[in-house]
Design a protein around this nucleic acid. Structure first.
Lengths: 160, 160
DNA sequence: GCCTCTGTACTCGGATATAGTCTGTCCGAGTATCTTGGG
DNA sequence: CCCAAGATACTCGGACAGACTATATCCGAGTACAGAGGC
């Protein structure tokens, strides 16, 4: 049960993008976060496919959020990067072996699968309640209100 | 974010073991569940290391639960197989790049890491509230009360 | 002076190697039972 | 008939290959701006 490390980069990238109304190139985000440029770009493509960010080509292109940061949940970002299939996938053990139950009698999911699904739902709900704007605000509060303004200043300074 | 498939086998094995006071060999559990014998044994060893099951060697040896099934949570089994490290591991991106924060200023975990940890806590709590006895009861209810008695009968029948 | 066309520099996007981990398997170490021999 | 010692058969435990996914990278397709030339 290991989450892709790209999730962390994607969340940080979304927080950074929430501080800029202009497109930010993937290379700029990679430089700011100290991450491999090419691999960072790959994850941004995944966010683009999921409809979370919009890509703009051309000389002053880059990535922008498609929606206000308050309307983007952390769950969406995690699912865009890590996939939306549940962590636990029932292999229907109950149908196998000498005491296997015929498939036609299995109307409900296995009790074990139900328990794991309930846990995953609790996890999803916790992440769905957190927006990118919340994360930006929390990061800002941790730094006494300097972090986000520093990011905005850096983004405009490196644009020239 | 993919959970080891061995988690499913381990949970089913614990439910089966809860129906027997006598040691059950790994090969017997593998046969009942239709799983690869050697690999099933490997996961049972992990349960043994975690203190969830006790192994008995010798001619009539096998595995038994160390505690009543009601005192073993699904979370313990999952952690024994899948590892107890959290799915999200913060790489401290905030300390990297041109706007990196010095490590000595990072007293609290990163806000993003806190959010992911809260989600994992919700997931853990959901699994901690479910015991092996609960799972056995649910499986029994799904089959109108025949599943567990069938398991007990099969275990005693194949012992001879 | 204004418009248009071309060139260029910059961007994203998907296809391509590499590494680590999970899956699956095998053989050796250890123990309780069963048998056999003696008292 | 009872006891003890040895052989045996069964168990678990850790060490060993194979396959798959995640990681990391590169190069090609596409677009907007800048500049030069013509009207």
């Amino acid at each position: 049960m290991k989450m892709s490390s790209g999730v962390e980069w994607a969340l940080h990238s979304c927080v950074t993008l929430s501080q800029s109304h202009e497109p930010v190139p993937a290379a700029r985000l990679a430089e700011l976060h100290g991450t491999p440029p090419a691999y960072t770009a790959k994850h941004l493509q995944a966010l683009s496919r999921a409809g979370i960010v919009r890509s703009t080509m051309g000389q002053v292109g880059g990535y922008t959020l498609t929606r206000p940061a308050a309307e983007i949940s952390a769950l969406e970002v995690v699912r865009a990067i890590d996939g939306d299939e549940p962590a636990y996938r029932c292999a229907e053990i109950r149908q196998r072996g000498p005491l296997g139950i015929p498939a036609e009698q299995c109307s409900r999911p296995c009790a074990i699968a139900r328990a794991m699904a309930a846990a995953q739902d609790a996890w999803s709900r916790a992440l769905a309640e957190i927006s990118i704007a919340d994360l930006a605000a929390d990061i800002d509060a941790d730094s006494d209100g300097t972090a986000m303004s520093d990011v905005r200043r850096w983004l405009t300074a490196t644009r020239s």
